[in-house]
Amino acid sequence: MKKLKSLFSGLYLTLTFIFLYLPILTLIVFSFNDGKGSRWKGFSLRWYEDLFESRVIMDALSNTLIIALAAALIATVIGTLTCIGINSLKGAPKAVYMALNNIPLLNSDLVTGLSLMLVFITIGWKFGYSTILAAHITFNIPYVILSVMPKLRQTGKAPYEAAIDLGATPVKAFMKIVFPELVPGILSGFLLAFTMSLDDFIITYFTRGAGINTLSTLIYSEVRKGIKPTMNALSTLMFISVLVLLVIVNLRPSGKKEKN
């Protein structure tokens, strides 16, 4: 009975694994295909050459990284400060504040993107870098707050008040006592915001200007026209870099296991 169960488990894991990785594997294999279609025409690196020579793709890549990094940084700073503010609020104002904060999380990306687009048009904010950045910060802050808030609640008020009683200024007491406790939450909030930004398509699609692309919007406009082997090459490189990054993160000595 037990053997049957573990056999079933193994089979189930294998099948799901195939389902998840077969599409990625075919992308990778066909990125080395000399032909354009899905017939194997021999090994070639031509799509990789095309990829690195393409100004459009390289521009989109740098836009994506810059926007994701900037949006995540700004959102982390605003989000962390806001958490301290929210923590000193009580009752109805706090509930209303948290409800407002939850709107972008509950709302679909489609409506968030469209509504931001309408605002930018209404106030005459020119579409481009700054509109994408503002939009990304808007949907990132709630994730930062969600990651930092629990840590702040765990910290409690007593150590902070003790430091004040012993003569520390509020700022010093905060930096020495509270902030170190928040660091794991701040870091995971930042990472969450960064990955959300990297992967976002819908909100960027509605808030970008005509001349500017992130990887997501570029891939969308390219792929709509059909199979593009350069996109296979791009997928392969992205998959490998994500894999390497995550393996490094996962293999680092886990002395202090973080409880989430």
């Binding site: 998840l20 990785y21 990625i24 992308l27 990955t195 990297l198 992967d199 398509f201 990887l215 997501s216 891939i219 969308y220 792929v223 996109m231 791009l234 997928s235 992205m238 998959f239 994500v242 995550l246």
Partner: peptide
């Protein structure tokens, strides 16, 4: 696979 771009 979640970390691969959604469109890819």
């Amino acid at each position: 696979p979640m970390w691969m771009n959604f469109l890819l």
